[in-house]
Simulated assay, not measured.
Amino acid sequence: MASADLAPSRSPTDLFGDPIDDSSPLWFKKDLFLSPDFDSESYISDLRTFVPFDTLRSQLHSHLSSLKHELVDLINRDYNDFVNLSTKLVDVDSAVARMRAPLSDLREKISAFRDSVEASLVSLQDGLRQRAEAANAREVLELLLDTFHVVSKVEKLIKELPSVPADWSNGDLDVVEKNHLSNGISLQDTESESNVRETQSMLLERIASEMNRLKFYIAHAKDLPFIQNIEKRFQSASRLLDASLGHCFVDGLEHRDENVIYNCLRAYAAIDSTGNAEEIFRTTIVAPLIQKVIPHGSSGLAGEASGDQLEADFQEIKQCIEKDCTFLLKISSRGMMSYRRPFIGQHILV
């Protein structure tokens, strides 16, 4: 009787279920099934290298039976609590209703706040867009104002130049030379004439600098109606500047006025018109020198000229270059090194 009392109690599953064998081979690791990165295909592939497939299948079936047994035990152990759960849940709907009301209020507040934030965001984005448009409009307006001021300044500076004949705007430098004596400047007063030339060259350099600014403004706003309306004024000022600058440069070359030539070269560089300066130097200095050494009409005798004559002409040309052309190289080296070689080397020796 005592032995019967000491016998352990056994569950129905132990009596009528499948036999459970807790012993498992060493190669069968149950913990691997609980690993987060468990892969069944890799697991079977690794074991088949040294475990027969039938043995592996039998062991897996045994493990499945063991898991089912544990699941039944867990359900039977807490079955009474599970059955009594429905009796303990009293007035659940009322509790849910009480919780739903504040949650609904919170949801409405969050929705209203979200709508307010979205409206503020849209308003802010619209304000930023308007601000960007206003900034762009301000930049364009400032550009137009600067353009207008520069045009007016250029026209005012051009009016401060000595009397400019109408033919200057057409680039007729011969007429300019003929009218040069009618400017009211006494040819006998050389010092006064030199001062006038230098003042004029400095003024032309200033005008050229302003014209360079004006070209920059026009290039950045050429499609605007305002710029198109002042295009004629710009072209007129440009023609007057070219004619006045050409006359001043010729006058400086003829009088070997270094300051005047230097200022004129800087003005040509400012308006990116060094080609005009090269052409004036060619026609004013180089062409007369070549004509003096090789008079026009003697080309027909070139074939009959002796080697000594050609050598003499060549030496004379070199002397003329040294005497009448090298001075420009020295002047340009004062501040226009970038224009020295193409200006001198390309056209003097042609």
Rank of each mutant, 00 (worst) to 15 (best):
E278F: 08
G246M: 03
I20M: 02
R138F: 11
L144K: 01
A208C: 00
F33W: 00
S23M: 10
S116T: 15
T284V: 04
R107S: 10
Q125E: 12
L60Y: 12
L67I: 08
S338W: 11
F16V: 11
H149N: 15
V150P: 05
M202N: 13
L145G: 07
K68S: 11
R206P: 05
Q188W: 11
S94D: 13
S11Q: 04
E258I: 04
F249Q: 02
E304A: 13
S24V: 12
S23N: 08
T274G: 02
T283H: 13
L329P: 05
C264L: 01
N183I: 15
E279V: 06
I185R: 11
Q125L: 14
E155Q: 05
Y79A: 09
D174W: 11
H247L: 11
A267R: 02
E139C: 08
D189N: 05
R239T: 15
S23R: 09
E70T: 10
E193C: 13
E142D: 12
L103N: 06
E139P: 06
E304L: 13
D93T: 09
D37Y: 11
F28C: 02
S42R: 07
D14A: 07
S209D: 11
V154R: 02
I285V: 02
G127A: 13
R129Y: 08
S273N: 10
L64P: 07
I218N: 00
S194N: 12
L60P: 08
K109Q: 14
T199D: 11
D78R: 03
E210P: 06
F53I: 15
D31S: 12
E311Y: 11
R100T: 13
D324N: 04
Q188T: 15
E210V: 04
E322V: 10
F314Y: 12
S192L: 10
R57D: 12
L328V: 01
S40E: 11
T55Q: 13
P8H: 08
K178P: 06
F33P: 00
A134R: 03
L161F: 02
V90G: 04
V175F: 08
A305S: 14
D308E: 14
I185Y: 14
A7S: 10
A243G: 04
I44T: 03
A287D: 10
D39Q: 00
G171V: 03
P25E: 00
R48Y: 06
F113C: 12
S65W: 14
I185V: 14
E133Y: 05
D324M: 03
